Simulated scan of single mutants.
Amino acid sequence: MRAYYMDDDLVGDQRLPHDSGRSVSDETLDKLGVLRWHIPVDPAGEWQSQVETIADERSYRNRDICLVTKEGMGDEFEKNLKRFYHEHMHEDEEIRFIIEGSGFFDVREHSTDAWVRLHLSAGDMIVLPAGIYHRFSLDMGNKSRTMRLFKDEPKWIAYNRSSATDTNPFRLDYLKSLQGQDVSVGA
């Protein structure tokens, strides 16, 4: 996985790198609450036991596989990519393990509101904390086969960024975890 700040001045397809040339440190990702592992995907499937160990440690009880390709989604492909790329948050952690292909998870750095772009490929696993603003896009490879893990029953409710999500209790809890103090509404 490679992490860097996006260049907001670059325009064009969301699947392009939009690389500012400024790397993001592990320390910054830790402060944002982004957990990450690299577990090589081997043909024998030994990676599955490592994913299971993490799932057990973090109490993830359910999982599914999501395939994002033009062939698999047909006419809905471009529409879905735009939907995935809309800035949002969840009231649960977002846990993803890339089995095949690659893509970008962008997360907001709260202190600057800058986009941090995480380029994930096969073997990369991330956990985004509940309440963090983020979005997803494929890269130019146009393919991702991803295991999604869930603490309880699979649910995937995206709350698009708005004044309402800025005051969502899960968002406020996330902000408190960053600052270790009370967070004013709209911060």
Rank of each mutant, 00 (worst) to 15 (best):
M1K: 09
M1I: 07
Y5P: 02
D7P: 05
D9T: 15
L10A: 13
G12F: 09
G12R: 07
D13A: 02
D13W: 08
R15D: 04
H18G: 12
H18Q: 12
D19V: 00
D19Q: 04
S23M: 14
S25C: 08
D26W: 04
L29N: 06
D30N: 06
K31H: 13
L32T: 08
G33D: 11
V34F: 11
H38S: 12
H38K: 08
H38E: 11
D42S: 11
A44M: 08
Q48P: 07
Q48Y: 00
I54L: 06
I54S: 04
A55N: 08
E57H: 00
R58I: 03
S59K: 12
S59G: 05
Y60M: 07
R61L: 05
N62M: 04
R63E: 07
D64E: 13
I65M: 12
C66K: 15
L67W: 07
K70C: 03
M73P: 10
E76C: 12
F77M: 10
K79A: 00
K79C: 04
L81D: 03
F84R: 04
H86M: 15
H86K: 15
E87L: 14
H88K: 04
E91T: 14
E91K: 00
E91A: 06
E93S: 09
E94Q: 06
R96Y: 06
I98N: 08
I99R: 01
E100S: 09
S102W: 11
G103H: 14
R108K: 15
H110V: 14
S111C: 05
D113F: 13
R117D: 08
R117E: 07
R117F: 09
R117L: 02
R117G: 03
L118E: 14
H119C: 08
L120F: 14
D124L: 03
D124F: 11
D124Q: 06
M125A: 02
I126Y: 04
I126S: 12
V127F: 09
V127D: 09
P129I: 02
G131N: 01
Y133S: 05
Y133V: 07
R135N: 01
R135K: 10
F136H: 13
M140A: 02
G141N: 02
R145Y: 04
R148Y: 09
R148W: 02
F150Y: 00
E153N: 05
E153L: 12
E153F: 12
I157M: 06
I157K: 10
A158R: 07
N160W: 13
R161N: 02
A164P: 03
T165V: 06
N168Q: 04
P169M: 01
F170C: 14
L172I: 00
L172N: 10
D173W: 10
K176N: 06
L178W: 10
G180N: 05
Q181Y: 13
D182G: 10
D182H: 11
G186E: 12
A187H: 14
